[in-house]
């Protein structure tokens, strides 16, 4: 089933895909999203819109997707299993497709413990792999999970995330294999700082031939400061920041650290572009969207392909 997704079309053309992300605001002000969007215009092929990331309440992903869609973007609706049961998930899938959203990213979701409502009840009626299967069933078979026929199939390009730096490492490629079996078409990875481990993971992915079935976009996040690098190393679950990165940032003057962070990010992208099976780059500049253009430019990712 062909979708109208830019990611699908660029993957098919054999060119590198570039994506970035927009975190919706903690309020109802659409201007915040529009402002972030403007910074990404002409820089990315599609833009992720996070779904209450780190379990902090924000404007809904679907609403922010629509605001970006109206600005000419191809948004990627992120959807987590934490807050919705299968009724709400299927309903939101239909709603997203009806609003012209072309991409969905199926995620487990951070535990609510990390957010601003740790006393909430979580849902996890399904997991991310089952969510991939749900979207595929709805789109390709035109059926709800309950078996009833859907009138008006949701035509969405299906994505997921994977963290090559989480444990147990030996099943991380197998886990992608399960996602591929469930129907995933593109994958964005957790931020890559430990290149050796990422290369090892890619090798395991290639051994299974998964790079040919799934468009793998390698994730990067620039450091703003050594403080941020330390925080990510010590406090963000599943993040692998090698000591030499911290040392490198520590080695430059405080006011030059953000520049150094950008430089590390650009070098990382250049290395990632050389790895067989990497089909794109996902630049997550957290609350630093104004730097995405500079990074993409310096990494030779611009201009983006024109799509009819």
């Amino acid at each position: 089933m062909k979708t109208k997704s830019n990611i699908e079309r660029i993957l098919e053309s054999g060119q590198l895909v570039v994506t970035s992300e927009c975190g919706p605001p903690r309020g109802a002000d659409a201007e915040v999203i529009k402002k972030k969007g403007k910074l990404l215009q002409g820089v990315v092929d599609a833009v992720n819109v996070t779904d209450n990331q780190t379990s902090v309440v924000r404007m809904s992903s679907l609403s922010a997707c629509l605001i970006l869609k109206e600005m000419g973007f191809d948004p990627i609706l992120q959807m987590v299993c934490r807050d919705r049961n299968r009724i709400a998930i299927q309903s939101d899938i239909l709603g997203a497709a009806a609003l012209g959203i072309n991409n969905i990213l199926c995620l487990t979701g951070d535990h609510q413990k990390f957010g601003d409502h740790p006393k909430a009840k979580n849902v996890f009626d399904m997991d991310s792999i089952q969510m991939i299967h749900t979207v595929k069933t709805m789109r390709d078979e035109g059926k709800f999970l309950g078996g009833e026929e859907i009138k008006g199939k949701p035509i969405l390009f299906i994505g997921a995330a994977e963290n090559p730096f989480a444990d147990p490492f030996e099943i991380r490629a197998a886990r992608l294999g399960k996602k591929a079996k469930a129907g995933v078409q593109f994958l964005q990875t957790q931020c890559i700082y430990n290149m050796a481990r990422f290369e090892k993971w890619m090798e395991m992915v290639r051994d299974r031939g998964l790079h040919e079935r799934v468009g793998i976009l390698a994730g990067v996040t620039p450091f703003k400061s050594v403080g941020m690098a330390r925080y990510m190393k010590n406090s963000v679950p599943g993040m692998d920041v090698p000591d030499e990165m911290i040392e490198r940032l520590k080695g430059v003057a405080k006011e030059k650290q953000s520049e150094e962070g950008i430089r590390i990010c650009v070098e990382t992208i250049q290395k990632l572009k050389q790895i067989p099976g990497v089909r794109g780059i996902h630049i997550m500049a957290i609350e630093w969207e104004e730097k995405v253009r500079e990074i993409a430019e310096a990494a030779g990712l611009l201009p983006r392909p024109e799509l009819a």
Binding site: A161, E162, N163, A166, D167, A174, R175, K178, Q190, G238
Partner: peptide
């Protein structure tokens, strides 16, 4: 049901 999330460390 299908494996660890990205937070297993």
């Amino acid at each position: 049901l299908n494996g660890p999330c990205g937070g297993s460390s």
